[in-house]
């Protein structure tokens, strides 16, 4: 079965989804402070890598990347509440793009599988 990544339309679709997703994240009062002063281009690239991974596209993300990338944020208080919001915005983004609910569930489960890595547990 084709991955969600392929069904969405590959890299160009991920780019579009990333913008919608990142805009939601930046507009969230709980999440936005963690992105202050962050280079938007570098951040978009990371978000695109993340979306590529959770939609089953070609990527080279590892649990170790997830841990080191978020260690400083966890030290600043990022926890389950923040992770839940990110997964929620991910689902909303895919829903807006017309991805069916059962596929969004697959993506959310993939995101869920890295929760402990992201939160350094």
């Amino acid at each position: 079965m084709a991955s969600v990544y392929e069904q969405l339309g590959g890299a160009p679709a991920i780019q579009a989804a990333t913008e919608i997703f990142y805009r939601k994240v930046l507009q969230d009062e709980t999440l936005a402070p963690y992105f202050d002063g962050i280079d938007m281009d570098a951040q978009i690239a990371k978000q695109a890598s993340f979306l590529t991974m959770v939609t089953g596209g070609p990527n080279s993300y590892t649990g170790r990347d997830m841990r080191s990338a978020h260690a400083k944020l966890v030290a600043r208080g990022v926890g389950d509440r923040h992770f839940d919001l990110v997964v929620q915005y991910l689902g909303e983004t895919l829903s807006e793009l017309g991805v069916p609910g059962e596929l969004i569930k697959v993506v959310a489960d993939t995101a869920e599988s890295v929760r402990n890595d992201v939160l350094n547990r």
Binding site: A11, A45, K46, S49, T52, P58, N59
Partner: peptide, 10 residues
């Protein structure tokens, strides 16, 4: 390099 998917351009 980054994403290896043609997205991040790094």
């Amino acid at each position: 390099h980054g994403c290896r998917s043609g997205v991040c351009r790094s």
